[in-house]
């Protein structure tokens, strides 16, 4: 399912003020097609990249950063081709999913190396980047001895040291403990709020839900959906949604609901004394349900969408 359309101005896959533009991108590895005619763009703020394993998220991130060449289509970062114009890397950084780090280096040496390659002229930048990810205390320990989460943060520090305009983060919260996750989420949101283009992929969907203002969903190398979480859901008008309703007279309400045009099905759970209402028109149901209950003198105790999380949305998209 795609919620995109051909109108560039309203196409949710295309960001306004785009700094990263992906146009009709196809990438394949031998017989395996990793990305197929993908068109989307990313602008300032945090954008989430979602998809099941093998959807092409990592390949897209590698194509954006120029790590892999494209077979068809184009990728432009601030108007430049990352494969041909290496100057673009001064303004862009990648935190890859791979755990690989140069094990023989200390965290400070790694960050300093990145600062040297990017000609960072601020003496304090390496320490500041390490402090940002809470690694300053262990900066002189070899990254090879770090835990998975610490390695991840070392890579983030290495990416942040040059204060890049475009930050591409592939599963950046992998291995981080819950406290660090919260801190990193806050950090990425702040970076996005500061006007940087932050592209984040994650399989922990509720984190993306809290993190990203805009979501691009990939399935089998193609664009499945794009936009804000709500926008995606609103556009999914051919996908049934489920709403849980608890009230003081479930049987009677079920009978009344069946008569509504917006309702396609009602399931009554007698054990729990609750209804699951299936609808294609959630807004109409939201308006009609209270009126119906009032008219029938039924007291509504709880009305809750069952599939409004990003996770359930994702499940529906990839179904």
């Amino acid at each position: 399912m795609s919620v995109t359309n051909s109108d560039a101005h309203s196409d949710p896959a295309l960001a306004t003020d785009a700094t990263v533009e992906v146009n009709a991108l196809s990438v394949w590895f031998g017989p395996k097609v990793a990305l197929s005619e993908l068109t989307c763009s990313f602008g300032p703020g945090v954008s989430g990249l979602l998809g099941p394993n093998g959807a092409g998220k990592t390949t897209l991130m590698r194509a954006i950063t120029g790590l892999v060449g494209v077979n068809e289509g184009t990728v432009r970062v601030t108007g430049r081709d990352p494969r041909r114009d290496r100057s673009v890397h001064a303004a862009m950084a990648l935190v890859p999913e791979d755990e690989a780090v140069p094990g023989g280096l200390t965290a400070r040496q790694l960050v300093r190396y990145m600062a040297d390659l990017r000609r960072v002229t601020d003496r304090d930048a390496p320490d500041r980047a390490l402090r940002t990810v809470d690694l300053l205390d262990v900066a002189d320990r070899q990254v090879g001895t770090f835990s998975k989460g610490m390695r991840q943060r070392a890579k983030i520090a290495a990416a942040l040291v040059s204060d890049p305009d475009v930050l591409v983060l592939d599963e950046p919260l992998n291995g981080a403990d819950p406290v660090q996750r919260l801190h990193l989420i806050a950090l990425f949101k702040q970076l996005g709020a500061d006007g940087r283009t932050v592209i984040v992929s994650s399989h922990v969907l509720n984190e993306v839900e809290r993190l990203a203002e805009r979501v691009i969903v990939l399935v089998h190398g193609r664009l499945a959906a794009a936009g804000g979480q709500r926008a995606i859901r609103d556009a999914m008008d051919d996908t049934p949604r489920h709403v849980l309703v608890r009230c003081d007279n479930s049987r009677r309400l079920a009978g009344a609901l069946v008569g509504l045009d917006s309702v396609t099905g009602v399931t009554f759970d007698s054990k729990r004394d609750e209804l699951t209402v299936q609808t294609l028109q959630a807004r109409e149901l939201a308006i009609a349900l209270p009126r119906l209950a009032k008219a029938a003198s039924i007291r509504l105790l709880e009305v809750r969408p069952l599939d409004d999380s990003l996770e359930s949305l994702f499940r529906e998209l990839v179904r």
Binding site: Y113, T121, R123, D124, L160, L184, A186, L191
Partner: peptide, 28 residues
Amino acid sequence: MSAVTQPVARPWRPRSRLVAIFVYTWQA
């Protein structure tokens, strides 16, 4: 932890890239 802020930068001349890569090669 906080976002990367930009206090007054202390000017500094980084190592040349060639030297940085050379040192990295030995270290890493």
